[in-house]
Amino acid sequence: MIVRLVQRIAILLASLAVSSVLVFAFMAVLPGDPARVALGTSASDSAVAQLRQEFGLDRPLVAQYLSWVRGLVTFAPGNSYISHAPIGPQLADRLQVTLWLVGTGMVIACLLALPLGTLMAVRHRKPSGLVLSALSQVGVAIPAFLAGILLITVFAVGLGWLPANGWTPPDQDPVLFLKQLVMPALSLGIVQAAVVTRYVRSAVLDVLREDYLRTARAKGLRPTRALLRHGLRNAAVPVVTVLALQLATLLVGSVVIERVFVIPGLGSLLLDSVANRDLIVVQDVVMIIAMAVLLVNFLVDMVYLLIDPRLRGGGS
């Protein structure tokens, strides 16, 4: 158990290192000098040289990489090339917003997908199961932004129940915060739910065919209780895997959704920075997203160990 834990932590650290090198290298090989890009074509050579010196861009790449990583690790990622404002507080603010959005979206997806997928599996031969299957198929085909636009059209423009866009921090106005969170989170969540439902369905279907479920029924458990007591935990492993993979999709989806709903999250920051050629911010945001995905994968590995005793290793 301890060995596994140490192993997984080592893997996490190694993948973080590799991904940071990749992100840095990708930005470094982009054509154009970041300082020149930041100042524009009309800037004088001396002004560019001054900026390069100010941000350490004249140093060797390895030194630049190390100081960038040091900045991230110490939560002091330096200043923007464009606004010269410190990036750290901005990243923290934006990350918080995106976490609310993605987190709520994920919760909605789970609340919908877990019961519906199970129901679809249990009723896979009955009409109700087939209808649910067809609905989820449609859901998979809808992109999140389209779902968002549809929701806006109906609930903001049509019925006027909810604000069409905007963002208010929860500590400022909790009610408005929730009102503004509902639609973007739903757009992300519903589409995710459609995808996850299908995985839940197939995971539960697999479990339903397992011998130990028959054993459970031979003991005198009714089918539903047999599934709840003996099936769900076993079905959880593939479902958790998919949830982790989908979290990456959700983060990417949030970039678009933040645009649709005018939300100042990480995604908006990424798009704005790309538009402004604020390359260091782009680099930081991409790295944060990569870190989030790796961290989630690490946590999923831990969850596996909790769910399935076979993975813990060690005999009796």
Partner: peptide
Amino acid sequence: FQEPMTALNPT
């Protein structure tokens, strides 16, 4: 049952 390897709940 016939197959003891799969007849018990692994978790």
